[in-house]
Nucleic acid binder design. Structure first.
Lengths: 190, 190
DNA sequence: GTCTATAGTTCGATAGAC
DNA sequence: GTCTATCGAACTATAGAC
């Protein structure tokens, strides 16, 4: 991919992920780059194609980022979940549900189902690859692992929001520590 | 409030909460009601005013719904969290973070800060009113209660999404049971 | 590769008939 | 209370000069 197209994707990614597909115009994206709106069409086919290219690149990064975070962590559940949480709070699109619902509703059905598959393969899969072995070892409760993975993403989505808006006075590292502790051992004092 | 305006708010609520402020046009809302777009302006001042009226009414319902759910439940942490979760999965707007970020970015700053305050007062407050006494009793870990409340909302947001899209084969009641069990006692087998 | 110009559509909002 | 008609602005996308 050309370096110029890469820069277009960078600008589009920031805007689309922050505010959503419908809320961002091609002029907004061109404006960030100091270009006229029409100039974008030399690099991309249209708004939908641009959005899907952004999503695909981002999801590819999620997958490799999560897999590397897991591979670099010690081979135990707590360390791996912390590594996942650490990656997610810094690199996850801040609103996954908007992507899966609102954004998906405004692109073609083909693209929408691709979007869902990308999230399943690039975000759910790596997390499941940590949870499921731990369940087989009898370490984790024998409940639906998709629910556990969804809970982790849902929580981290909220943490990432708190973090970006600076709504907690704790350092990010401490927040992750506490969140993972609750998910592993519960909020109840034992 | 007139019955007709109420119907306008109903239609707008469903569309706005599902797809977001920017993605919905006044024509979309009128279409659901079988009206011409211009007819809406007899009932509301404009799109922003309509959106804020929808948010305010919804948040008022969240507050009374949550407070009643808590009051009707037995006076113990687990029962009250389940009551909250039960209410949220059925009545929460499906994407709180989109409301607080994307939607807020497309309305006037005054309205945006009102939106934030409504969420704090109508959703966070009732949840805090359950968590904080339990912390004072020494029942819950002495961590930031806002973080715990945010975790609950984040998780329930994801559960509500799973539930609406029918991505889990369990009945909703069982999902809530498992989610609250994890938040209270952790996913680790003890 | 980026520009200007513009076609064609859709948007929020207003005016005025009924 | 709802309609038709319409305005001005913003949108995606294309054509063609440079």
């Amino acid at each position: 991919m050309s370096e110029a197209r890469e820069r277009v994707l960078d600008a589009a990614e920031k805007l689309f992920m922050d505010q959503g597909y419908a809320a961002i115009s091609m002029r907004d994206i061109a404006g960030v780059l100091g270009l006229q709106q029409a100039a974008l069409y030399y690099h991309v086919k249209g708004k939908e194609e641009l959005f899907m290219a952004v999503v695909e690149r981002n999801m590819q990064r999620q997958r490799t980022g999560l897999e590397q975070a897991i591979a670099s962590a010690p081979d135990d559940l707590e360390a791996q979940l912390k590594a996942i949480a650490h990656w997610l709070v810094e690199h996850m699109p801040v609103d996954m549900i908007r992507m899966l619902r609102s954004d998906a509703a405004h692109i073609s059905p083909t693209y929408a189902s691709q979007l869902l598959r990308h999230v399943a393969e690039s975000m759910m899969e790596p997390i499941l690859s940590v949870i499921q072995p731990a369940q087989r070892r009898g370490e984790v409760q024998p409940m639906d692992p998709n629910l556990l993975a969804g809970m982790l993403i849902g929580v981290m989505n909220w943490v990432a929001y708190f973090d970006q808006e600076a709504l907690l006075e704790m350092p990010t590292e401490a927040v992750i520590e506490q969140v993972i502790a609750v998910l592993l051992h519960g909020m109840i004092v034992r």
